[in-house]
Amino acid sequence: MSIRMKLGLGIAALAFTTAALAQTPAAKPTRIRGDIVASSGDTLTVHRKSGDTVKIALKADTPVTALKNIKLQDIKPGEFVGTAATTGTDGKLTATEVLVFPEAARGTGEGHYDWDLGPQSSMTNANVDQVVQGTSGRDLKLSYKGGSNSVTVPENVPVVTFAPATHDDLKAGKKVFVVATPASGGTFAAQRIVVEKDGVVPPM
């Protein structure tokens, strides 16, 4: 299997796991955001944005990916994206980040659902039907199974896509986004990890 194919499959799995867990209350996942304090063998220690420090168990095959910046102008109709957004008092959605999925991950986690990035935060995984230049950025006309919406993407909002990474990139001081499940003694078991690399911090 080629490296490109392995990366594509790994990214598709990451996208599926992140989105599927977000929509499945029974799974009760934890999305951990913070800074790596230490990484030793099978344990990752992370200081969360919430202020506490947690230990996360790793396996040799726990998928790790990074991100790379792309331009807002690079988003084209027909692409599949995931965008976190906030809802204004007028009911309109304004993006706080946009992730452009590779073709291998098309359709995973499709839909519109609550997200925990901040107050009034939601996530939409959907196809881009149309890109319209607006006064506050670009408006993405999105469609997904069962619905559609429009999200305004300001010029200063992070727009990213996946990039390769390994366990060697899990270094102290790097920021991470971890999808994990609770384990015993207040610890967690990592399912997928997105790590800061080349200065690109996971915005999700």
Rank of each mutant, 00 (worst) to 15 (best):
A26E: 12
I75M: 00
P203S: 09
L93P: 02
V46P: 06
G51S: 13
D169Q: 05
D42I: 03
T83L: 03
R106D: 04
P182G: 05
L117M: 09
G78Q: 07
S150P: 02
I3V: 12
N156I: 02
D61S: 11
D61H: 11
V128K: 00
G137V: 04
T124P: 01
P63K: 07
R4L: 15
D52G: 08
W115D: 11
M204T: 03
L9F: 03
V37S: 04
K145R: 14
A60L: 10
L67P: 08
A12D: 11
H167V: 07
A189D: 12
G173S: 12
T187V: 04
G10D: 10
M1W: 11
K141D: 03
G146D: 10
S143R: 06
P203H: 08
S150F: 04
A84Y: 07
R31I: 13
V160G: 07
V132D: 10
N125H: 11
V98G: 00
M5A: 14
D35R: 13
F101R: 00
D129K: 10
I75Y: 00
T24E: 12
G146I: 12
N127K: 10
A27Q: 13
P29N: 13
Y144H: 11
K28I: 09
G111W: 07
T135P: 12
S148P: 08
T87E: 13
G186R: 13
H112P: 00
A20R: 15
N125M: 03
K197G: 01
L7Q: 14
G51L: 06
K59I: 00
G137H: 02
K175I: 00
R48A: 10
V201Q: 15
T17M: 09
T43D: 04
D35G: 04
A189K: 14
T96R: 13
T18F: 10
G51Y: 14
V151Q: 01
V176Q: 11
V176R: 08
G82Y: 03
T30Y: 14
A22R: 15
M123F: 04
V195Y: 06
V194I: 14
A126T: 00
A13H: 13
T24V: 11
K28A: 15
N125P: 03
V157C: 08
A27K: 11
L9P: 00
A190C: 02
